[in-house]
């Protein structure tokens, strides 16, 4: 039995969100708990390098690291993102613990209710590798939770859904909203097709009559806005996000209807930067509907309303910002204490 309170299990090669969230989680957990780390490597990331964000966080806190060692026994084991097992038929680890938490960074289901990946097989591998008293599946947002609630019917009965969301920890500096908002719109994301609604929806969200439209991560948009001089298309990674956010007042974020964000960290980031976020209803739930949400056809009208009512604009941004504390380390630790204390 490890002496630490919590053993974090992760494939250190996860690109993007999972590794960022993992690193932020170490910072949070270290405030209350002793933590160890287990690196496990699956075929999904074969040949890819370890993510520096993970390595730096582990190094910064001088955490003990276990790799190729089994069995590992700890009171609490937190396994991040089971999707990493999706190409494997075995999981070469053995764990024993009181509480096993499997954090679903990746949605288990699509908005249509289909599997997002072969989650049943991944959970089955984890079951076979672990002896635990409590098997928790931890969603990371309300939208993500819906998929878990759908999927759990297809999993072994030992699994139970954690009562609170294992959200991304957000430490953004809050900037004040502008006092004179204008119809300047923007969005940023990775460039994949899943991040964008279809062409006609994009044309409505970033119309020619807007004063300015900026899209960072526009790589896959092709010729969609070729004829529109008010649209600035910026390939992914060509501008720092903080700098980009200064270019507009409204952060307009809709994704492909056949896909959904697990959490929506970009919305929290834009809100913290003082931007008024308008998004789809299901994603607004992550923020307890404190960010504005609308049907695509109604976005123009909503922007016009806020442009004509700067005070309403500022009130809306401040309301959304005030909710961000729910994603703080303190909020997370208090919820976790309730389970593992």
């Amino acid at each position: 039995m490890l002496k630490e309170d919590i053993l974090l299990v992760v494939d250190p090669r996860f690109p993007g969100g999972t590794s960022t969230a993992f690193a932020a989680e170490i910072d949070a957990l270290k405030q209350n708990y002793t933590v160890a780390v287990c690196y496990t490597r699956a075929s999904m990331f074969k040949g890819r390098p370890d993510n520096p964000a993970v390595l730096e966080a582990v190094e910064r806190h001088k955490l003990p690291v276990y790799e190729n060692q089994r069995p590992l026994s700890c009171r609490n084991i937190v396994l991040h993102n089971p999707v990493f097992l999706k190409f494997d038929s075995s999981f070469n680890q053995r764990f024993a613990c009181q509480n096993l938490f499997v954090i679903c960074h990746e949605n288990l289901c699509t908005p249509q209710g289909d599997w997002g990946f072969n989650a049943a097989a991944c959970f089955h591998l984890i079951e076979r590798a672990t002896i635990a008293q409590n098997y928790y599946i931890a969603p990371i947002s309300p939208g993500n939770r819906e998929g878990v609630e759908h999927a759990i019917h297809f999993l072994d009965r030992r699994w139970q859904i954690l009562k609170f969301d294992w959200f991304n920890k957000c430490h953004f500096e809050l900037l004040p909203p502008t006092q004179s908002p204008s119809d300047r719109r923007g969005r940023h994301s990775r460039p994949g097709h899943e991040k964008f609604p279809n062409t006609s929806a994009m044309a409505k969200l970033f119309p020619p009559h807007a004063q300015y439209c900026g899209i960072l991560g526009s790589d896959s948009l092709g010729e969609t806005f070729e004829q529109q001089s008010n649209v600035e298309l910026l390939p992914f990674g060509t501008m720092a996000v903080a700098q980009f956010l200064q270019k507009f007042d409204f952060f307009i974020y809709y994704v492909n209807p056949m896909w959904q964000e697990s959490f929506g960290r970009v919305l929290a980031e834009a809100t913290a930067a003082g931007k008024l976020v308008i998004t789809e209803h299901r994603l607004a739930k992550t923020f307890n509907n404190t960010v504005a949400s609308a049907e695509i056809d109604d976005v123009d009208q909503l922007i016009e309303h806020y442009v004509n009512n700067p005070s309403a604009y500022q009130a809306q941004v401040i309301k959304a910002q005030s909710y961000l504390h729910n994603f703080s380390d303190a909020s997370f630790l208090s919820k976790l204490n309730g389970v593992i204390a």
């Binding site: 999706k86 190409f87 699509t110 249509q112 289909d114 599997w115 997002g116 990946f117 072969n118 097989a121 994949g192 097709h193 899943e194 609604p197 279809n198 492909n256 209807p257 056949m258 896909w259």
Partner: peptide, 19 residues
């Protein structure tokens, strides 16, 4: 395999915006 089956289906759902 099952994962490729799921993954391909989801990719096309995203590309086409259809079931």
């Amino acid at each position: 395999d099952v994962n490729s089956h799921i993954s391909l289906k989801n990719k096309y759902a995203i590309i086409t915006g259809r079931t």
